[in-house]
Design a protein around this nucleic acid. Structure first.
Lengths: 111, 111
DNA sequence: AAATTATTTTTATATTTATCGAAATATGGA
DNA sequence: TCCATATTTCGATAAATATAAAAATAATTT
């Protein structure tokens, strides 16, 4: 995952309602939930939720499938996986830092 | 890590300049870099950089230490570690979710 | 076709965030 | 003390984001 893809994903999760939506969708699993059910369970007005779902969808964090009148949203685990990989590979540091995957870095003193 | 701490951290990283700053600080390691050096290497005006450093600092992602006239910023690996843990624990599915998170690690000792 | 349900899009507004020149603060040296 | 350096804070402005009522779209039922 490149940073120009990671940033929209991070941005999508960096908001209270959207993080709650995503966590809920992860909890319920691949079956997903209809938009109306999400709105009800989180107490969010429909237009507000739709705005946030659109944001999550655009970031690739959720997918959506129409079943009859309902739009069923599900978490996209692959994108989440790639985001976590991006963070561990690019934003975790040396031996004393985040364990997984670190390139040794040669530090030179200021010139 | 609670979500009310994770959100500021996610928000801090969800911005091009701040993500670049954090990645740079991870690259250079625990020695850190002076604000002016970061500004020069990333081509960001000093006031703009200061705004973003403050944001990263409030999110607990960087620490700062004055040495003479310079303020040396370093990545805070612990917060990053906790953020990744939060994401894997709360935003990745159970057994069927994002399990292959970590690639095998080959760590070379730092020189 | 009309009514009903589920959801999105439009629209408007309020709030937050990003940018960067100018001024202010802090440190060290002459 | 005066000057230079390093960085932050102030101030103004522009841009993006969040909210939710009202209207519009889509699918189903009667």
């Amino acid at each position: 995952m490149e940073s120009n893809i990671a940033i929209p994903a991070l941005s999508a999760l960096a908001q209270e309602t959207r993080l709650a939506v995503f966590r809920l969708l992860v909890q319920v699993g691949p079956t997903g939930l209809a938009a109306g059910q999400i709105a009800e369970r989180l107490g969010v007005p429909a237009p507000t939720l739709s705005f946030h779902l659109s944001h999550l969808s655009h970031a690739g964090l959720v997918t959506c499938q129409r079943i009859s009148r309902s739009l069923i949203y599900s978490a996209n685990y692959q994108t989440m996986n790639e985001l976590v990989s991006f963070l561990t590979e690019n934003c975790c540091g040396g031996t004393s830092g985040c364990e997984p995957i670190c390139n040794p870095v040669s530090v030179r003193s200021a010139s």
